[in-house]
Amino acid sequence: MAAPLRAPITDLREGTCTVREDTAHYLTRVLRLAVGATFVAFDPATAREADAAIASIEGGVTLHVSTLRPARVVAPRPLTFVQGLAKGDKCDAVVRDATELGATCVIVAECARSVVQLQGARRTSRLERWTRIAHEAARQCGRADPPRIELLPWAEAVSTIDEAARRFCLHVHEALPLGPLLLEAVQTEGAPIAFAAGPEGGLTAEEVALAVGRGWQCVSLGSLVLRTETAAAAVLGAVRVLES
């Protein structure tokens, strides 16, 4: 049986509502839905969903939304990935993968070796882009609670994680293997877990020391050196497998 069509709807509420222009385009141009067509609407901000039907497409798309309910698929635990700000579309890939693998928060961290500098309108635009990617990935994978996306300096990023979380800083020069520690962390159902990785050039000794001073544990992913955009998929994928 094919999975039901799904779409994120901001400020989802029961009854009749008119959707935003970008959502209207997705429903009528991408999905090619007509009046009377049904789909599952979900609100990324509240993790609630409802059955919805297109009531009208004249002068904007209007929906009839049924009773709201808690979303059927949400992340099973607080799961954070801190990604050093990287070049090009690498952070796009990290946000997309992290969303599909159950992350509840993605923090893009400005590091000493980050080549990209985001200021002003460019900073706002990039955050909006990552949030949109998270919403699209949540729609695709069936969850209704896309991760919160933040852009912070490294020092602030590693300091904002709940102290109750098991926090692992991925570092190429560390010998302590992640595997046994992660297995132990995952065995506590619902317990928060966080990972952090640097940008293309890695983390400086000062940044590693700062993380350790904040309670992070430096760990290794083995002898292979991964691209910065690959680390998130590796460790978050391991969490998904161990939870299943």
Rank of each mutant, 00 (worst) to 15 (best):
residue 1 M to A: 14
residue 1 M to Y: 11
residue 2 A to N: 14
residue 2 A to V: 14
residue 3 A to C: 05
residue 5 L to S: 14
residue 5 L to K: 14
residue 7 A to S: 15
residue 7 A to D: 03
residue 7 A to F: 11
residue 9 I to H: 07
residue 9 I to M: 07
residue 10 T to S: 14
residue 14 E to P: 11
residue 16 T to S: 12
residue 19 V to A: 04
residue 20 R to G: 14
residue 21 E to W: 08
residue 26 Y to L: 08
residue 30 V to R: 06
residue 33 L to R: 04
residue 34 A to D: 15
residue 35 V to H: 02
residue 35 V to F: 00
residue 36 G to C: 01
residue 36 G to E: 04
residue 36 G to K: 00
residue 40 V to S: 05
residue 41 A to R: 03
residue 46 T to A: 13
residue 53 A to E: 12
residue 54 I to F: 03
residue 55 A to L: 13
residue 64 H to T: 15
residue 64 H to L: 15
residue 65 V to Y: 05
residue 67 T to Q: 10
residue 68 L to G: 06
residue 68 L to S: 06
residue 71 A to L: 07
residue 72 R to F: 06
residue 73 V to L: 09
residue 75 A to G: 14
residue 76 P to V: 05
residue 76 P to G: 14
residue 79 L to R: 04
residue 80 T to E: 00
residue 82 V to M: 06
residue 82 V to W: 04
residue 83 Q to D: 01
residue 83 Q to Y: 05
residue 85 L to N: 07
residue 85 L to E: 00
residue 86 A to Y: 07
residue 90 K to I: 09
residue 91 C to Y: 00
residue 94 V to Y: 05
residue 97 D to H: 14
residue 106 V to H: 00
residue 108 V to W: 06
residue 112 A to Y: 13
residue 113 R to C: 05
residue 118 L to H: 06
residue 119 Q to Y: 09
residue 122 R to P: 08
residue 125 S to R: 15
residue 128 E to R: 13
residue 129 R to W: 12
residue 133 I to R: 00
residue 134 A to M: 09
residue 135 H to G: 06
residue 135 H to A: 13
residue 136 E to Y: 02
residue 137 A to M: 08
residue 139 R to V: 13
residue 144 A to D: 08
residue 144 A to K: 04
residue 149 I to N: 02
residue 150 E to I: 07
residue 156 E to I: 02
residue 161 I to V: 15
residue 161 I to E: 02
residue 167 R to N: 01
residue 168 F to E: 05
residue 168 F to D: 05
residue 175 A to P: 05
residue 179 G to C: 04
residue 182 L to Y: 06
residue 185 A to P: 04
residue 185 A to R: 04
residue 185 A to Q: 02
residue 186 V to L: 10
residue 190 G to P: 07
residue 194 A to S: 05
residue 198 G to S: 06
residue 198 G to I: 04
residue 198 G to L: 06
residue 199 P to A: 03
residue 203 L to M: 11
residue 204 T to D: 00
residue 206 E to T: 07
residue 207 E to H: 01
residue 208 V to P: 03
residue 211 A to N: 02
residue 212 V to K: 10
residue 213 G to I: 12
residue 215 G to F: 10
residue 215 G to Y: 08
residue 217 Q to A: 12
residue 218 C to I: 06
residue 221 L to M: 07
residue 222 G to Q: 01
residue 223 S to K: 15
residue 226 L to V: 03
residue 227 R to P: 03
residue 228 T to G: 06
residue 229 E to Q: 13
residue 230 T to P: 04
residue 236 L to G: 09
residue 239 V to A: 08
residue 239 V to W: 00
residue 240 R to T: 15
residue 241 V to W: 13
residue 243 E to Q: 14
